[in-house]
Structures are given as structure tokens and as C-alpha cells.
Amino acid sequence: MPEQSATRSDNFVQLTFLSKPENVAFARVAIAAFAAQLPFTLEEIDEIKVATSEAVSNCVIHGYPDSLGIVTLRADLVDGSLRLEVKDEGVGIADLAAAKEATFSTDPERMGLGLVFMESFMDEMHIESAPGRGTTVVMTKRPTSSAQENVNDRQSDHEL
């Protein structure tokens, strides 16, 4: 699978780091800088930063609750879209459906909003998890401005 995604990818970065809260800001800033290669608006870049922050924070809090572990973050440019993959090899999620409930949170001071933000701010989000084997989140987002250009292209083609 990695080979296949590599051939489809126009560009990628991959970051591997320890599951420390200090690395969350680093991760979102790096991804925001990489995503700026696509014609995202500033607002969309802000949304990508929040989604990245949530995914990496989940690895730190839920993936490795009692220890430090490795977080792998890979960003690809695929067909004009940004594809983000955030992976930990931590404890995993036993009940994905429960985890997706908006009010679900294992910590009273957190609002269980992480997944809501990831789903709202990205076009697609997919989670794979197995207890004891870790969790992988894949998210994609397409710049709205490029969608607009495509529409314009099609319109001008039509006029010709």
C-alpha cells in the first residue's frame, strides 16, 4: 500500500516524533506549511491546523495514555488534494462508534470535540483501530478555490 500511495503522490512529507504535547504545535505548523503548496485559503489552512492538532493530540492522550510512543504523520499531495495520515501504535480504540459520539470523552475537561472538528474541517475522515495495535486516521481536504477553477474551466470549454 505505501508504494501505491507513493506513486500517486505528487509530493509528500513524513514526520516521526515522540508522543509529547510539545510536538503537537510542531506537527500542525509543519503540515500547514506543506499544505500551502495547494491553493488553500487562509481559513482552510487554519482548519487543517486544527484537524492535525486534534489527530496528533489523540495519539498523545488516547494512543499512549500511560507511556510515550511513536507518532507517524504523513502528508501527501494527491490529485490536487491534501491527504493526511496520522498513526500511532498505541492502545487502540475498542469501540469506534462510541468514540465518535460528540459527547464521548474519557476526560471531563475535554469536550470530546476532537473527532467532530476533524470531520467538520476536512472533506473526508476515516479511522482504523484495533485494541493493542494502534490507531490510524486518514483525512483528505481539497482546496475550494481549485474546485471553483475547475468549474470555470468547464464553463469556458463549453463556451468554445
Binding site: 491546523k49 486544527v50 493530540s57 476526560d107 475537561e109 475535554r110 469536550m111 470530546g112 476532537g114
Partner: peptide
């Protein structure tokens, strides 16, 4: 210039 769910959680707290 940046707030995520961890930031909102601590504000709500």
C-alpha cells in the same frame, strides 16, 4: 491565534 479542543476543554473547565 490558535485554539483546539484541548483549549476549549480547559476554558469550559
Amino acid at each position: 491565534d490558535f485554539v483546539d479542543s484541548s483549549g476549549l476543554g480547559v476554558i469550559l473547565g
